[in-house]
Amino acid sequence: MYSKSNRILIGVVFIVCIVGGVMVFQSTYAKSTTNQSQTNSPNYPKNINGQTYGSSSDATSPETEPELISATGVDGTAGYVLKKDLDGELPKSPEEAIAIQNSRSPDGRDIPLFDVNGETVIGVFHVGGK
Rank of each mutant, 00 (worst) to 15 (best):
M1L: 04
S3N: 09
I8T: 05
V13F: 13
F14Y: 12
V19I: 15
G20Y: 01
V22Y: 10
M23Q: 12
F25S: 02
F25W: 11
S27K: 05
T28I: 00
T28V: 10
T28Y: 00
A30Y: 01
K31D: 14
S32I: 05
S32G: 03
T33G: 00
T33R: 13
T33D: 07
T34Y: 01
N35Q: 14
Q36W: 10
S37W: 08
S37A: 10
N40I: 00
P42R: 10
P45G: 14
P45E: 09
K46Q: 15
G50A: 09
T52S: 15
G54N: 14
G54Q: 11
G54M: 13
S56T: 02
D58I: 00
A59D: 10
A59R: 07
A59K: 09
E63Y: 02
E63N: 15
T64L: 05
E65Q: 15
E67A: 08
E67V: 14
L68Q: 11
L68M: 13
V74W: 00
G76F: 03
G79M: 08
Y80S: 12
V81K: 03
K83S: 14
D85Q: 13
D87Q: 13
D87G: 02
D87A: 12
G88V: 08
G88Q: 08
L90Q: 15
P91V: 01
S93G: 06
S93D: 11
E95N: 05
E95S: 11
E95H: 01
A99T: 06
Q101R: 07
N102K: 14
P106V: 03
P106F: 05
D107Q: 13
G108R: 05
I111M: 04
I111W: 08
L113R: 01
D115R: 05
V116Y: 06
N117R: 06
G118E: 13
E119A: 12
T120V: 09
T120F: 04
V121Q: 15
V121L: 09
I122M: 12
G123S: 04
G123K: 07
G123I: 09
V124D: 01
V124Q: 11
H126L: 01
H126S: 08
V127Y: 05
G128I: 07
